[in-house]
Amino acid sequence: MSARSARSAPGRRVGDRAATDLVGYLLRLGDDALIAAQRLAEWSSRAPEMEEDIALTNIALDQLGAARALLTYAGELEGAGRDEDDLAYLRTDREFANCLLVELPNGDFAVTMAKLLFLAAYQHPLYGWLAGSADDRLAGIAAKARKESAYHLEHAALWTVRLGDGTDESHRRMRAAVDEVWPYTHELFATDDLLERLDKAGVAVNPAAVRDGWLDTVEKVLDEATLTRPVDGWTPGGGRRGLHTEHLSYLLAEMQVVHRAHPGATW
């Protein structure tokens, strides 16, 4: 066994605390990406312009690619014989660990861009940190996803500025979108025991440490978009513990229906 793989070897033992922690963390990351992908894919064939349709679908596919790699790894590490499809299609809403932000409905185009801006401004530095994770496989997945999220961030930032600093109507809508989505961003940086253990082990970063950078990025964009940062108040959460909004159930029903109706079907 090489020195590199030996580093992450302790995490590979099934039943081991570290492995259980990592599975939980991979599900959080993977579910964020999977649910974001499903929501973005709802724009397919419905975006305001054909070029934007391709862009949103492209971003959805990036998220889906990251979700597949993360969930596959979670399934292997868990050791219960579940693959990416089992995890995506056969869990109920209470078993999903995504943040509430990604499951919120798309709303109008401004809401979709506000959600994407906040998510990408979080995923980009997070994946950047994880690219240096003590767990080699997670580091590899993150290194690839980091490049993709840089593009997502730029795309959402361009649109936020264009709409915020656009017409009266686009400004009104963009401001309403930012106000509506803002409370859900707090959950991204909430910490708990699992995150602290993984942080100590050098496997993951405590997301609270990413918030300053996130605020920096987001405030610059909002400023350029002539929008003001909403006041912090209500902080909905619970997604990491499987407590979701009703929107996730409807999303899962649509995402899982074919797989549940035809288990094991292939084409």
Partner: peptide, 15 residues
């Protein structure tokens, strides 16, 4: 089609 040069570059990259 794109609204500005940066967006045109992004769309070109996608398309």
């Amino acid at each position: 089609h794109a609204p500005d040069p940066r967006m045109a570059l992004q769309h070109a990259r996608d398309v």
